[in-house]
Nucleic acid binder design. Sequence first.
DNA 1: ACCTCTCTGACCATCTTTGACTATTGTTTG
DNA 2: CAAACAATAGTCAAAGATGGTCAGAGAGGT
Lengths: 151, 151
Amino acid sequence: MQNITDIIEAYLKQILNDETKVEIKRQEIAQRFDCVPSQINYVINTRFTVEKGYFVESKRGGGGYIRIQKIVLLDSHDLLDEMSAWVGDQLTEQAAEDYLIRLMNEQLLTRREAILIQSLLRKESLPMDVEDQHRMRAHLMQTLLQTIKRL
Amino acid sequence: MQNITDIIEAYLKQILNDETKVEIKRQEIAQRFDCVPSQINYVINTRFTVEKGYFVESKRGGGGYIRIQKIVLLDSHDLLDEMSAWVGDQLTEQAAEDYLIRLMNEQLLTRREAILIQSLLRKESLPMDVEDQHRMRAHLMQTLLQTIKRL
DNA sequence: ACCTCTCTGACCATCTTTGACTATTGTTTG
DNA sequence: CAAACAATAGTCAAAGATGGTCAGAGAGGT
């Protein structure tokens, strides 16, 4: 673990332990680790490949970046069951949104899917008194979680 | 997201989340974001193209403006309104499924999206008496149709 | 020595920002 | 009313800001 490549790899992976993705500026990282910018490309091409479970995007020009995301192909049943337990039989609009975001982060829902579902869980979409709303929302969320398991 | 273009894009799109259109004065926006006026043209030419679903009009001279509108494809727009009228305020499970299939065929929903939504509209997902179920299902479908329009 | 993995730098590709010049529309003046 | 003037927006090419590629040099292990 002496060469720069390994050090930069470790640095990025350490961030990916907490965050679902890491976004860097090539030049900035190169400077921080005192190497040429193209070294960063080498790190990415050898350590963050699709085969190794990473998805990399980048943009050139002003405001350019390199973004690395860990692809999670986890057996997600456990997570879905956990969420199911958390949801219980009552759910606020805000909590619902948080769960949807979590599902998106875990790549179990696309952004579009999350938006569609969220619109159905808004209070305006559930014409009933608040108590029932919370129950209804929870019920729909439970259905969703079970459905995702089967997709 | 630190270049001016992205910041101005976000600003305008945020307005478009609430309003169906946004009308600006080029000079004014340029000043607010401290950039040259032609920067605004760049933003519009790269971020608010027809391919991306926006319609832009402008006028020069005194009282000039730049107006940006989100495009809803006429065909789809009409179809969604028609369906909205057909749905009314009551909807059976079978009818709901038919509508979802239609939306899929019109490529307004993906297969996965349709399956997710359908599961939420099943009677098992709507714990209430049949009368209310039909009303609830219709209400959710109406929400869905409106949401698709804005997507 | 030989092979493989790393590192470097020159050169390339793409996206953004800027500003001089142009085009159009509205307003005032003779 | 026509001409001049004012107030806007549009175009385009050059400069700036990033990231990408690739071939060759360097380093470490067998």
